[in-house]
Design a binder for these strands. Sequence first.
DNA 1: TAGGATTTGTGCGTATGTATT
DNA 2: TAATACATACGCACAAATCCT
Lengths: 237, 237
Amino acid sequence: MTGGEPQDESRGAARERYERIYAILRNRICLLDYPPGQRLREEDLAEEFHVSRTPLRRVLGRLEDEGLLRSVHGVGTIVTDIDIDGLQQVYQLRVELAELIGKLSPVSPQEATVAKFRALLARAARLLDEPDAREFASVNMEFTHLLAGLTANEPLREINERLYYQTTRIWLKTASKLSQYREMLVTEMTIFHREIADIVAAIEIGNLESVGHIRRAHIAMSFQRLHEQAHSADQSP
Amino acid sequence: MTGGEPQDESRGAARERYERIYAILRNRICLLDYPPGQRLREEDLAEEFHVSRTPLRRVLGRLEDEGLLRSVHGVGTIVTDIDIDGLQQVYQLRVELAELIGKLSPVSPQEATVAKFRALLARAARLLDEPDAREFASVNMEFTHLLAGLTANEPLREINERLYYQTTRIWLKTASKLSQYREMLVTEMTIFHREIADIVAAIEIGNLESVGHIRRAHIAMSFQRLHEQAHSADQSP
DNA sequence: TAGGATTTGTGCGTATGTATT
DNA sequence: TAATACATACGCACAAATCCT
């Protein structure tokens, strides 16, 4: 152990900066700082991070390969959107993959990791008194990361995170356009808080298989609720 | 329908060239034209494809993100290798995903697609009389592609193909270092021929769920055979 | 329809890092 | 240890494509 590198053991200042900028932009997209449809300018971003366009384009290229951006010659680089059908496809897949965390090389988490889960539970609890969409998205993201870390199967971890990034912003954006947005948000936060509580309980007794089942159920129900809300909104106005 | 574009509807000459070069290099890596450890020179490749290093580096960047290459500043761009443990992780995941093809949005294939499966069956049959490692790898790759196309779930299709690319060359390379290489190859080809026959039969009666189960079994057994051979080779010499 | 403004894509020279002698 | 060779990383200027007036 050399210190605090989060995941990759890749040395090299250039690579580190690349990963850093990538993570920042990805988070901005997923937290709706850059909502779907937003146009980004390479030059502005290059200036912000104090690099030239060349290394920045390397980052944008990866985000494009992962489906979060789309660059068009002569037009610009825009944050992508997904239709309800594409959203459903990703959710169906995530539902199946959730269960695999408890089946493929599950790792009993260190006490430090369990502490992080409890910290998220506390943040989710505070959210109930003081609803905040961005904080909700943030907690949700960190929770997903921690969960993905419960498997030693690295490809599975990467895929889980990748699919999450592709859908989470769409969930927020779709929900925010519905009339029942505030109630929905509170409902979701309440359910989310229960999910974390359930999963923390499962982790504390070392039953990672149950973690997978709980998570699977919640992903499936979360999409179902969104889908039904969106559908009823189509019919009523 | 405009014509013969295989999958992506992305217009733009630049993007098309990018995808073309990417596919070519990826295939060279997977078919061991560039074996693990091989060093590639950006300038040579740029010259071969009649582009400058800039767009070529975009391709290399993607191949690196997907784990097929690794660029190190001042050293070079080398084809990656995977240890047996990483190989096992990918295989375990592929085993689980194989079954999902029959469960998530399976599509009954067109007659043209079925014809392609039969054509591959014929190629596999020819392989039995005239063993050829590269042709084996080639048929195997096209077969994997066709199978991935049996689901309308695009993320699942992409992930299946991506994981395949990460492991297929390692299988070949590992096997080629064993003393029983020729026998192994013939054995694998025989089994592979049966797998295609079984799957074609399942497709012809429209049972895609069984396709998934057959595939799952074969992926699992394929890795087990490789693993046992490699292990016994460790002990004997 | 034409032309200018804007933005991404490309080409190339240079900087920087690594390995070897 | 220092110098040299060589590969990737970077910055900038220009080409190409699109949009809007």
